[in-house]
Amino acid sequence: MSKLLFSATMSLDGFMAGPGGDMSWLTEHIGPNPTVDRLIDEIGAILVGNRSFRGDDPHRDDPEKAGKAFGSWDGPHFVLTHHAPATPMPGVTFVPDLDTAVTAAKAAAGGKYVNVIGADVARQCLEAGLLDEVFVCVAPVLLGDGVRLFDHPGGTNVKLERIAQTEAPRATNLRFRVV
């Protein structure tokens, strides 16, 4: 059975995108990371929010990597949105609600992980009790503002159990199970 994994690179102060969704800060922190390379092989489908899907791409200046999750992953994408485009996109399914999106993504993942991309979709999955794991690459930079990894107005306490910690030249990788 496929599991849901939220993965992101974040700044040390907890931002995964800069102000306005700017991802340009990430480019200099992308580099060799054997843990991420292994993770990419474990992903069978992507569940992504509309804002992230249509947002800034840290690989936009590299024609071989642009538009691909992790700069190299290729497979089925499920975009959670209430505003699907009129023209279909190959390999992309636009889905209007979380339950339908998760069910379809898990079926397409074929027992591999469904990788969740986007802070809002990850928050929705957490609130619905659907998220199984969190994988975060912590980049050695402070952004000061932007899109937080997890934002829940009024606060909440989501318990996590660390299951792995590895080092890469440009990040510290942390993997947690949602308890």
Rank of each mutant, 00 (worst) to 15 (best):
2 S>A: 10
3 K>M: 09
5 L>P: 00
5 L>N: 06
11 S>A: 12
11 S>V: 13
13 D>G: 01
17 A>C: 03
17 A>G: 06
19 P>D: 14
27 T>L: 10
29 H>P: 01
31 G>D: 10
32 P>A: 15
35 T>K: 14
36 V>E: 08
36 V>G: 02
38 R>P: 01
39 L>N: 07
45 A>Y: 08
49 G>S: 02
50 N>T: 12
51 R>I: 14
52 S>A: 15
53 F>H: 09
53 F>S: 11
54 R>W: 01
57 D>M: 01
62 D>S: 05
63 P>D: 01
65 K>T: 06
66 A>H: 03
66 A>L: 08
68 K>I: 04
69 A>R: 01
69 A>V: 14
71 G>L: 05
71 G>C: 08
76 P>W: 04
78 F>G: 04
79 V>R: 00
80 L>N: 08
85 P>S: 06
86 A>T: 15
88 P>I: 10
89 M>G: 00
90 P>H: 12
90 P>M: 01
93 T>I: 09
95 V>T: 13
95 V>N: 01
98 L>H: 08
100 T>R: 13
101 A>M: 11
102 V>E: 13
105 A>W: 10
106 K>V: 04
106 K>E: 14
107 A>E: 12
108 A>L: 05
113 Y>A: 08
113 Y>M: 07
114 V>P: 02
116 V>D: 09
117 I>R: 00
119 A>D: 02
120 D>V: 11
121 V>H: 11
123 R>N: 04
123 R>E: 12
127 E>W: 02
135 F>E: 02
135 F>T: 09
137 C>F: 04
140 P>A: 11
148 R>C: 05
149 L>V: 03
150 F>G: 02
150 F>E: 06
151 D>N: 14
153 P>D: 08
157 N>E: 14
160 L>I: 07
164 A>E: 14
166 T>C: 00
166 T>V: 07
167 E>K: 12
169 P>I: 12
169 P>D: 06
170 R>K: 15
170 R>H: 12
173 N>T: 11
175 R>G: 00
